[in-house]
């Protein structure tokens, strides 16, 4: 399988001139500045081979990387946002919706999918950060709730991959109530003794963290992911000092006991398969 390739892709030396090659062929690591073939990074699950930086990836790319053979059936694709409050700040919410739909090709900030992972039927809801910062409005709440309900109906495990700045202000209390709605749906999974695994990616903050992201039977974070309730800027304003390096990063949460595991993206599928096999009583996944 492509994502478990043993041979490490070779790092390409940084070269200033390389910046001017056709767009898309090369990428520069946001963290270490290394310039590499885009394909090299893609072959490494969008992780910088040099420093291990996890590039942000789309929901669909993520789903491909998790399901067996990269194949899944999307469901609830028709669920779309409305503008229940007629919200307008410097821009109309309606216009923002149109703009992000055009830019991402997604109706809103989450994709629901069904398929198998390590041979186990599983439901995965995956957030799309490129759509309005992955913010949680009614559609995100509705679709994750439906994913939980489908998991319940099919007695399948649920995985939610979070990537979000938090609640969507433009839907105000509708957004807030999605926290309660999803958490109540997860309570039903608890009662049915069905596994729910939360995968937190960079960033996972605000109302998303303070609801489903922290409620996993197992909480898994990607390396260095920013995870917290209040954003770093808000905390800095509150305490009037700079936050220490690494505060609210995945490794910090691991140390503080808030996540079970920090898992490298290339190992994520394997980790999920092993846990799900244990929780569902399935045979161990092939090595």
């Amino acid at each position: 399988m492509w994502f478990r390739r043993k041979k490490k892709p070779e790092a390409v030396a940084a070269d200033e001139r390389a910046v001017h090659v056709p767009k898309g062929m090369w990428v520069k690591c946001d963290s270490c500045g290394q310039i590499m073939f885009a394909q090299t990074v893609a072959d490494n699950a969008e992780v910088c081979p040099k420093c291990g930086y996890h590039f942000r990836i789309s929901a669909r790319r993520r789903l491909e990387s998790l399901f067996d053979n990269g194949s899944y059936q999307e469901f609830d694709a028709e669920v779309a946002p409305t503008d229940p409050l007629g919200f307008k700040d410097q821009k109309r919410y309606k216009d923002r919706i149109a703009q992000y739909q055009a830019a991402t090709g997604e109706k809103d900030a989450v994709v629901n999918a069904a398929g198998t992972l390590g041979g186990i039927p599983v439901i995965i809801s995956c957030m799309e950060y490129a759509y309005m910062g992955g913010s949680m409005g009614s559609v995100v709440g509705e679709k994750i709730t439906r994913a939980a309900e489908r998991a319940l109906a099919e007695k399948a495990p649920l995985i939610v991959v979070a990537c979000s700045g938090g609640a969507r202000m433009q839907e105000s209390v509708f957004s807030l109530m999605q926290m309660a709605k999803i958490s109540a749906a997860l309570a039903r999974l608890q009662e049915a003794r069905l596994p729910y695994i939360s995968v937190m990616t960079d960033p996972t903050t605000g109302g998303v963290t303070a609801s489903f992201a922290m409620l996993g039977d197992v909480n898994i974070a990607e390396p260095k992911a920013l995870i917290g309730f209040a954003g770093p800027r808000v905390i800095e304003q509150t305490i009037r000092q700079k936050l220490p390096e690494g505060f609210q990063r995945a490794e910090f949460l691991l140390e503080k006991g808030m996540v079970d595991l920090v898992v490298h993206r290339t190992q994520m599928r394997r980790t999920l398969a092993e846990l799900l096999a244990i929780f569902t009583g399935a045979p161990p996944p092939p090595p």
Partner: peptide, 16 residues
């Protein structure tokens, strides 16, 4: 929204 609250799992406490 303070450091101590974050360290002790403000998000988890609310979510739970």
């Amino acid at each position: 929204p303070g450091m101590d609250a974050e360290e002790r799992g403000q998000a988890e406490a609310i979510a739970y």
